[in-house]
Nucleic acid binder design. Sequence first.
RNA 1: GGGCCCGUGGCCUAGUAUGGAUAGGGCGGCGGCCUGCGGAGCCGCAAGUCGAGGGUUCAAAUCCCUCCGGGCCCGCCA
Length: 639
Amino acid sequence: MQVRTYDPMQKLKSSIAETIDKSGLAIRTQFEIPPSVELGDLALPLQQDAKLKGVNPSELSRSVSEWIESHPNPFVSESVSVGGYVNFRLDTKNVAALAWSTIRSLGESYGCHAPTGKSVIVEHTSANPIHPLHIGAARNSVFGDTLVRLQRARGHAVRAHFYVDDTGRQTAIAAFGYQLLGEPVPSEKPDHWIGKVYTVSSAIVEVLSAKEKLHSTPEGEDAAKLRSNIDEWMSVLSEQARLSPDLTDGLSKAMAGIETPQESISRLISEYEEGRPLAKRAIRKMVDYCLSGFKETLVRAGIHIDSFDYESDLLWDDSVGALLDSLEVSKYVAHDGRAMIFDVDAAANDFGLKEILGVQKSHVLPRLVLTRRDGTTLYVTRDLAYSLKKLDRADRVLNVIGTPQTLAQLQLKVVLYALGYKKVLEQIHVPYEQVELPTGSMSGRRGHYVAFDSILDEAKSRAKPEVAKRNPEMSAEVASELAEKISVAAVRFALVGVGASKKILFTWDRVLDFEANSGPYALYTFSRANSILQKSGKVADSVEPDFGSLKLPDEHRLAVLCARLPENVAFAADTFRPEVLSEYIMRLCDVFNSYYGKAPVLGAPTAELKDARLVLVRMVHVTLRSAFNMLGVPVPQRM
RNA sequence: GGGCCCGUGGCCUAGUAUGGAUAGGGCGGCGGCCUGCGGAGCCGCAAGUCGAGGGUUCAAAUCCCUCCGGGCCCGCCA
């Protein structure tokens, strides 16, 4: 049976390695890419091997290249020995043919790898359901979703999970306001409306409780602090009163009758945790409205969540209770009243986890409080139970969570490992840096944020005139669809195009400048390739080309680049770095743009050349389309 | 006090995992290219002490140490 080829470059490398192995030189065949195209397509560095063998690197590389020259490999057109490297120039014809047969057989799935049978859960987004997704969450979503797509392309069975934090105090504050308003149907996009309810409720509660405290506080520093606190929240309130007068007014009136809102909120929390019907109805109703708003935004950005996991379910189905029972008897747990405190450092030392997790031995890991003195659970406790649930459902779990959570994620691993869940090592924190605004940090509570929706809207409204300018004959509807695609591409490229460890300073121009942004450029390149294929009037996939007629350096580069998609996907997936793929796309676009500008495809001098070029264009076309799919970028047929 | 991350031309960024061949791109600037498959394009030019200093090495943007600048974390918050 023929084994299906997924990765042409891999296949070709093994073939060359095999040829070299026959020489009996016994060298490692770890290929690299030379720093410049003039040097070749593949490089074999032999300095290490030369050292081990105690021979001169140049001599070794010369023997290898001489061997290849006298024992030809179909994929190598030339091998040159330079300073301990053997540089290989690949044979355009055979590389193109190999890439083409792979592309033709895989079609849209070109770039994907053989199924592994391994299951992966990617948890991402998981924003609090009390305000719209903002730009920071957008980075999480886009990054997380791209990871989902990449893991899938890697051959794993992947599911995207969203952890719904519905038992926290913040959620209760919003739900409390929602209850007071009579639990209405939101009058606008639900997450945006709930965001307002949350900000106003939060501000009123802050003001009322600060005022309350002020009564029993003697004049001095503390009182002054309370006063400035009141002032701050009053100004948030007046801002909201200006933006949404009815809502603010309604909530203020309803809240005025409540003497101790903090207590009411605490009661709501505990009633919800106990699963009391009224509390349950109000909170779930509000949360689900908010989630429906999230979904709308996510769908627009091409993001799909397979499972929304409610934190409250972990309490109700006693997952948390079971976890507490096993913690109770752990030798690392100390009790203080009903509070449980976990000695993370001792556990990490005992199990040798510092070494495994890359923590310095001398670094003392902070203890972790798992329950309050009154016995109630904390966020981490529920998160522990949630981790177990995720690990139960997949071979591997990727948690897309911001860098501020790094320590907490580490502690979580130690605790679960110490409880005997060794599989927790298969749960990986994939961190990303925050997005900052020029005006300072965002605050959901204060209603200060840039919503994901606004970014998409703004991108679209900037794209529209550009589309209209270039396509005056296009109907408004089609133009709008196109503008939508372009804006999603621009936003996704902007958020995933830089390494996750880099902070992003969000400015409208940075993200939405269509000259600077690589998204529209890449889509444009694709649409040009598409247009050449359309114009040809041929079905490129049924053409049997003679790749031997491709002589231009750019034709060679394009064939080799197309063959490299799968290995780039593998690397991006395995290192959790989508930017690897976006860099690859840019490289391919650069070469292709330059190519079709100087080499006529449809007007090629001979029929053979025309066919070969046409197929090459098709290869670029399919390769780009696959790569876009993996980045979650929609593809327009024309622009 | 302890720990983590970032620091590459005016601005943004790749390269750091596995040290190696002239540090790649983009924006902005300057100069060209619409009789050719659509100019969101192409071609060219100027612009760099890879934060600083030491060390290891035949070889350091990359590894080690110290320091500087920016950010984050070390809650009976989430």
